[in-house]
Structures are given as structure tokens and as C-alpha cells.
């Protein structure tokens, strides 16, 4: 199979280029396997990866124009030559490795931890299965960044707009029956940027390798905010 890979090494190159590779890809080959074969051909090629099964979220890349996780993307489904680039909109460190600092900052900014003011019970805090079901489709996020780095609003304002990932997590805590910081969380989302830069373009939904729906989560937050303000 033919691959065209984005290459840039700040130690050696003045500007990025695309490099072609040929890879034998037997049935069942995932894109990560192909990238590993390319690395065996050329050890200077750099990309992040780890678990190989779509749970650690390390190997998000842009493939034929779409953000995907390499380890769960079968190459058989891809049009040749397969063009692999780093996530769009992020500073490139080297080859497919990008700087995700702002993405993580936005995650931290929404206070992604459970806040409870009541004294702790001796056993577990009770939660009905129906209440727990509210977290399905939210807690499974693996922080790969496929969504936020495919979002035009995040491209423009990565310092001010939380982006789909952080907002999905914001809703994960707002939706948790155990969390007691609803007012505080909603107040923190006020203003023209943090939440409201979402223009429901829905690239995030398309990009999420775990099938999650950040746009829907953002809609829930907006609804709650509306109720909150009246």
C-alpha cells in the first residue's frame, strides 16, 4: 500500500514535506501497524502510540483529511495513497507529534473532578442505574483530541474556547447525580467564548473514535444554562 506521510524534524529540516512509503499490509492491518512498519524502514519517523486497542488515546492523527485513532483504523478502508498528517491547528513538534498543551489546559479549566460538599458517607454514595446511565456516552472519553483539533472554533480560539472535549467533560460532571457544583460550573462557562463559540459545526461528532457526541453534550449545557438564568 502507498502512504504519504508528513515529515518535519526541527533539528534537520527548514520546512515540512510529504514522504512516500510502500508498506505490505496483510488483512487486518491497522494504520498503527502500518506506521510501525514505516518506522522499521526509517527510524527517524516519530509518532505517539501505546495501547494499540483504542483506549489510551495516544495515536490520534489526521488520515485522508479526517482525525482518527491509528490503532483502530483498518487500512483496508482507506483510499490510496493514504495521506497521514499531524492533527490540524496544533503546533508540530516533530512529524506526527503535536503540542497538545492548550488542549490539556482547556480540560483542566473546566475543573474535571467531582465536587461534593456533603459529608462523605461511610459507604458508597448511592446512585440509581438510571442516574448512572446519564454518564454513558460521556465518561468514556479518552482525551485523544480528535474532536477538539477538528473543530474550526477551537482552531481560531484554542486559548479561549474550551473546545468539544472539555465541554463534553463539563457535561459529564453536570450530569452526574453526585456532583453538587452545578451553579459554580455554569457560572464559569458564562461569556462569549468558553462555551458559546460552539457553532454546532459537528466535526467533533464525526471525528470521535469512541462514538461520543460532544455537540449534544454542549446542547445540554446550553439548555441548562438557559433554565439557570431564568
Amino acid at each position: 500500500m502507498k502512504f504519504r506521510i508528513y515529515r518535519y524534524n526541527p533539528d534537520a529540516d527548514t520546512e515540512p514535506s510529504m514522504q512516500e512509503f510502500d508498506v505490505d499490509a496483510p488483512r487486518g492491518t491497522m494504520l498503527r501497524d502500518a506506521l510501525l512498519m514505516i518506522k522499521e524502514q526509517d527510524e527517524t519517523f516519530a509518532f505517539r502510540h501505546s495501547c494499540g486497542e483504542g483506549v489510551c488515546g495516544s495515536d490520534g492523527v489526521n488520515v485522508n483529511g479526517q482525525n482518527r485513532l491509528a490503532c483502530i483504523t483498518p487500512v483496508a478502508d482507506l483510499k490510496e495513497p493514504v495521506e497521514v498528517r499531524p492533527f490540524p491547528g496544533r503546533p508540530v513538534i516533530r512529524d506526527l507529534v503535536v503540542d497538545m498543551t492548550q488542549f490539556y489546559q482547556q480540560y483542566r479549566a473546566i475543573k474535571p473532578w467531582l465536587i461534593r460538599n456533603d459529608p462523605l458517607p461511610e459507604q458508597e454514595t448511592l446512585q440509581s442505574p438510571a442516574e448512572r446511565d446519564q454518564l454513558d456516552g460521556l465518561y468514556e472519553c479518552i482525551l485523544c483530541g480528535c474532536c477538539s483539533t477538528s473543530c474550526p472554533s477551537f482552531w481560531w480560539n484554542p486559548d479561549k474556547f474550551h473546545g468539544p472535549q472539555a465541554l463534553l467533560t463539563a457535561w459529564r460532571f453536570l450530569a452526574d447525580s453526585r456532583d453538587q457544583a452545578t451553579d459554580e460550573r455554569l457560572d464559569a462557562l458564562e461569556g462569549p467564548y468558553k462555551l458559546f463559540r460552539c457553532h454546532t459545526i459537528m466535526n467533533c461528532v464525526e471525528a470521535c473514535p469512541k462514538g461520543l457526541n460532544p455537540t449534544k453534550a454542549i446542547g445540554h449545557i446550553k439548555n441548562l444554562m438557559l433554565k439557570h438564568s431564568v
Partner: peptide, 19 residues
């Protein structure tokens, strides 16, 4: 395990609300 739950781990639940 209770501490994990208090810290926010989204454990699956039984009908009586327990882990």
C-alpha cells in the same frame, strides 16, 4: 473502593444504588 467512588469513579450500579 469507597474512596474511589467518593472521588468520582462512575461505577456501574445495582437497582438499590450500590456499586
Amino acid at each position: 473502593v469507597y474512596e474511589l467512588e467518593h472521588n468520582g469513579v462512575p461505577f456501574s450500579r445495582l437497582d438499590n444504588g450500590k456499586i
